[in-house]
Each structure stands twice: as structure tokens, then as C-alpha cells.
Simulated scan of single mutants.
Amino acid sequence: MKNPALVSSALAAALSLGLVAQAQAADAAKEKCFGIAKAGQNDCASASGSHSCAGQAKTDKAPDEWKYVAKGSCEKEGGSTKAPAKK
């Protein structure tokens, strides 16, 4: 009886597609905000290339460190959506 397994697989695939779409919509509602991350709380690599992982910011509010914030709230928090120029 492979039919119930096939139906279960198809149902699981359909449900997972919905979750992927939901996650993509949530990501679209966020933007990178430079200059607001606290030490150790950045979301990924620095814009200057000094490191390549989240959580490695050395100082608070370094201009090349970033974190995700709700779209439209970056400037209100004192940050910038544009990466600083590389030196």
C-alpha cells in the first residue's frame, strides 16, 4: 500500500511550500540597518569584511555592523540602510 505514503508525502510538500512563502514574506518586511547593532548582536558579516559571522561585532553601533529591523524603522533607531563605503 504505497498510496497512503504518496498522499502523505504530497500533503507534507504542500504544507511546507506554505511555510516557505510565509518565511519569504517575513524577510521582505525587514531591512538591513547599519550602525545600530550592539557588540555581539550583529546579524551577519560586517560591511568592511573584518569578520564573516553573526555575533562578532566588537563595539556598540559600529557603522559597518548591521542587524535586521522592521522595514521603515532603521532611521528612527539612528541607523542607515546604506552600507558605509569600503576603505
Score class of each variant (00 low, 15 high):
1 M>R: 15
3 N>Q: 13
3 N>W: 12
4 P>W: 06
5 A>E: 07
6 L>I: 10
6 L>V: 15
7 V>M: 15
7 V>R: 11
7 V>C: 05
8 S>L: 15
8 S>K: 14
9 S>H: 09
9 S>D: 10
10 A>I: 15
10 A>Y: 06
12 A>I: 11
12 A>Y: 07
13 A>P: 04
14 A>E: 04
15 L>N: 08
18 G>M: 08
21 A>V: 11
21 A>Q: 11
22 Q>P: 07
23 A>L: 08
25 A>L: 13
25 A>P: 04
27 D>Q: 15
28 A>M: 06
28 A>W: 06
29 A>L: 13
29 A>M: 09
30 K>T: 10
31 E>P: 09
31 E>L: 09
32 K>E: 14
33 C>M: 02
34 F>R: 10
34 F>I: 05
35 G>N: 02
35 G>D: 02
36 I>E: 00
36 I>A: 03
36 I>Q: 00
38 K>P: 02
39 A>S: 08
40 G>Q: 04
41 Q>F: 07
42 N>Y: 09
42 N>M: 08
43 D>R: 07
44 C>L: 11
44 C>D: 13
46 S>N: 14
46 S>K: 01
46 S>F: 04
47 A>Y: 10
48 S>R: 05
48 S>T: 12
49 G>I: 11
49 G>L: 05
50 S>M: 09
51 H>V: 05
52 S>D: 11
52 S>P: 11
53 C>F: 14
55 G>V: 07
56 Q>M: 13
56 Q>W: 12
57 A>D: 02
58 K>N: 11
59 T>H: 12
60 D>G: 08
61 K>N: 12
61 K>V: 06
62 A>V: 04
62 A>N: 06
62 A>I: 02
65 E>W: 02
65 E>R: 04
66 W>H: 01
66 W>K: 02
66 W>C: 01
67 K>W: 01
69 V>R: 00
70 A>H: 07
70 A>W: 03
71 K>N: 06
71 K>D: 03
71 K>Q: 10
72 G>V: 09
73 S>G: 08
73 S>D: 09
74 C>L: 05
74 C>D: 00
75 E>W: 01
75 E>Y: 01
76 K>D: 06
77 E>V: 03
77 E>H: 06
77 E>F: 07
78 G>I: 03
78 G>R: 01
78 G>V: 05
78 G>H: 05
81 T>R: 01
81 T>F: 03
82 K>W: 02
83 A>T: 02
83 A>L: 05
84 P>C: 04
85 A>Q: 02
86 K>E: 00
